[in-house]
Deep mutational scan, measured.
Amino acid sequence: MFKRLMMVALLVIAPLSAATAADQTNPYKLMDEAAQKTFDRLKNEQPQIRANPDYLRTIVDQELLPYVQVKYAGALVLGQYYKSATPAQREAYFAAFREYLKQAYGQALAMYHGQTYQIAPEQPLGDKTIVPIRVTIIDPNGRPPVRLDFQWRKNSQTGNWQAYDMIAEGVSMITTKQNEWGTLLRTKGIDGLTAQLKSISQQKITLEEKK
């Protein structure tokens, strides 16, 4: 169930391209415009997507990853294993993690069937560096609404905000991946996880038929 919630949630996290980005210092504006741009692209490019579902990787690479804190999220997933990894191991892992996100997020976007969304009203940021933004996803086919909290983090150097995690039903996506990959990290280390991520990233994206 959580895996499905995570995939549905990713439908609204794909941010804007650099040329049309919203105010990078306001995570609420980023979330709002990102959702609108993403849904528009999914709707307008269905012919290309249906002809070649792996085209979704391109959308992810162009529109999402430049505005997601990939390395920060990847380091959180590694936890204690990050500090013990060599620079070469980290570089290989982050490259594999990025390719994994292209496949995983692309597969999530393949679930698009006309969903709509509501974003919580903007709250004062103050001096906060981590801000959760509640998004409610509404399914046109009558499924119950899904309420999610996207975690946005302020870059201490640039002042810009980027998304790095999502919490559904009190469970963090980062925590879920830590639990899912924990045994592999304990037995085969970061190299074993890197190899698995490379394998997963090679899987073809498949479209979910409308139910």
Rank of each mutant, 00 (worst) to 15 (best):
F39A: 02
V68H: 09
G79Q: 04
Y105H: 05
T136F: 06
R147Q: 02
T58A: 09
M1F: 00
T129M: 08
R57S: 15
Q203P: 11
G159S: 12
L207I: 15
Y164H: 07
Q118R: 09
Q103E: 15
R50Y: 09
V60N: 04
E63D: 12
Q107H: 13
F94H: 07
G74K: 00
N179P: 03
Y93W: 04
L76A: 01
Q151P: 11
T86N: 10
K177F: 00
V131M: 09
E208Y: 13
Q62M: 14
E91S: 13
R50G: 10
P121M: 08
R153A: 00
K188D: 14
M1W: 00
A34P: 02
Q162E: 03
I59W: 01
I167E: 04
A21K: 12
L10P: 01
R4N: 13
D54Y: 10
Q162W: 03
Q196T: 02
P53T: 10
A18Y: 15
I13G: 04
K154N: 09
R143L: 03
I133M: 03
T194V: 03
N141L: 05
T176Y: 03
V8D: 02
E122A: 02
A96G: 12
F150L: 03
Q62N: 10
P66V: 04
D149H: 06
R4Y: 15
R41A: 07
S156W: 13
N160I: 10
M6I: 10
D61I: 04
N160D: 09
N160G: 12
M6H: 01
L76Y: 03
Q178A: 10
T183C: 04
L42W: 05
R143T: 04
R147W: 03
K102L: 13
Q202I: 12
I167C: 02
Q103K: 09
I119R: 08
P87D: 09
L64N: 01
P47F: 08
E169Q: 03
Q36C: 15
P87R: 07
L65N: 04
D61P: 01
K204Q: 13
G106K: 03
P121D: 04
A14G: 09
G192L: 09
S156M: 03
D61H: 11
T20V: 13
K211T: 12
Q118Y: 13
G114P: 05
A168D: 02
Q80F: 06
I205H: 11
K71T: 08
A110K: 15
K3P: 01
T158M: 15
F94N: 09
D139L: 15
G142Q: 11
D191A: 00
G126R: 10
T116Y: 15
R98T: 10
T175S: 05
L184R: 08
Y28M: 08
F94G: 09
A92F: 08
A96Q: 08
A19K: 03
P132R: 09
Q89L: 08
L11F: 15
G182M: 12
K211F: 11
K43G: 14
K177N: 11
P140F: 11
P27L: 06
H113N: 04
M1I: 04
P132K: 10
T116V: 09
H113I: 13
Y72W: 03
D191S: 05
Q196V: 07
G126T: 12
L10Q: 00
R153S: 11
F39P: 01
S201Q: 12
L30I: 02
D40N: 11
A34E: 05
P121R: 08
I59A: 11
L193R: 15
M7H: 01
E122H: 09
I59F: 02
A88N: 13
F94T: 06
M1N: 00
Q48D: 11
V70Q: 11
A21H: 12
Q69E: 01
Q36L: 12
G159Y: 12
M31L: 05
L11D: 01
A163T: 15
G114I: 07
M1E: 01
I13S: 03
T129Y: 10
A88W: 09
E122P: 13
F39I: 03
V70M: 08
Y72P: 01
Y28C: 06
K37N: 10
P53F: 11
T175G: 04
K154L: 09
A163V: 02
V12G: 03
A73H: 02
Y117A: 01
G106E: 04
L148R: 04
L65S: 06
V146E: 13
N141F: 08
Q36W: 06
Y82M: 04
Q48A: 10
V135L: 02
S84P: 11
K188S: 12
P47L: 10
A95S: 13
K3E: 08
S17H: 06
V60K: 00
Q46I: 11
Y28W: 08
A19C: 08
P47T: 13
W152I: 00
A104L: 06
Y82N: 03
I167D: 00
Q24K: 13
Y67A: 05
Q69Y: 01
L197F: 03
I205V: 07
I13V: 08
Y100V: 14
T25D: 09
A95R: 08
Q36Y: 15
K188I: 11
V70A: 14
P140I: 14
A168W: 06
N52L: 05
Q80N: 05
Q203R: 13
P144E: 15
R41V: 05
F97S: 07
N155V: 00
K102E: 07
A75M: 01
Q151T: 07
L207R: 14
P124W: 13
P87H: 11
A73F: 02
I174C: 14
A104R: 01
K43Y: 08
M1A: 00
K83N: 07
E99N: 15
Q103F: 07
A14K: 08
A35Q: 06
P140L: 14
D32T: 11
K211Y: 09
D23A: 09
R50T: 08
T20K: 10
A92R: 13
E208L: 12
T58S: 09
Q157F: 01
V77R: 01
A19I: 02
A120Q: 10
G126H: 08
Q118C: 10
L76H: 01
P87G: 11
E33K: 07
K198I: 11
G189M: 09
V146L: 06
E122N: 10
E180K: 04
V77S: 09
P121C: 05
Q202H: 12
I137A: 01
L125F: 11
S199V: 10
V77E: 11
R41P: 04
D40H: 09
P145Y: 04
L11G: 01
I130P: 01
I205M: 09
V131F: 00
A18H: 13
M166K: 11
V70K: 08
L185V: 03
I167M: 04
Y105E: 01
M1V: 03
T38W: 04
E99T: 13
T38P: 05
G74Q: 01
Y81W: 08
L76W: 04
R57E: 14
R50C: 05
E45T: 11
E208S: 07
K102H: 11
Y67D: 04
K210I: 11
P140D: 15
Y93P: 00
A9V: 15
T58G: 06
P144Q: 06
T187L: 14
Q48E: 13
T187K: 14
D32A: 12
G106N: 02
D191C: 14
G182N: 12
D32F: 13
D54H: 08
R90C: 06
L78A: 02
Y28S: 07
T183V: 05
A18V: 13
Y164E: 14
L10D: 01
A120V: 14
Q202M: 15
E209W: 14
K204W: 10
D40L: 09
D127V: 06
S172H: 02
K3R: 03
G142M: 09
Q123D: 07
G114A: 00
L78D: 00
Q157R: 07
F150G: 08
M7L: 10
Q80I: 11
R134G: 04
R90W: 03
E91C: 06
N141H: 06
A51D: 10
Q157W: 08
T58W: 08
Q48G: 12
T136D: 04
L30D: 05
S17C: 10
L11A: 03
N179F: 00
S199Y: 14
G170S: 01
A35Y: 05
V146F: 07
K188F: 05
Y93F: 07
N44V: 14
I49V: 15
K204F: 12
P66W: 05
Y100S: 13
T194R: 07
I59Y: 06
K210A: 13
G159N: 11
Y105L: 02
Q178K: 06
Q203V: 12
D165L: 00
T175R: 06
K154F: 04
K204G: 12
A73L: 02
M173V: 02
L148N: 07
Q151R: 05
G114E: 06
M31Y: 03
T58I: 12
A95K: 13
A14R: 02
Y81Q: 15
D191P: 13
I138L: 11
Y112C: 02
Q157L: 10
L125Y: 14
P132L: 07
S201H: 09
W161Y: 03
K177T: 14
Q151D: 04
G192N: 12
Q107V: 14
N26R: 05
R98P: 09
T206H: 13
K71M: 03
T58Q: 08
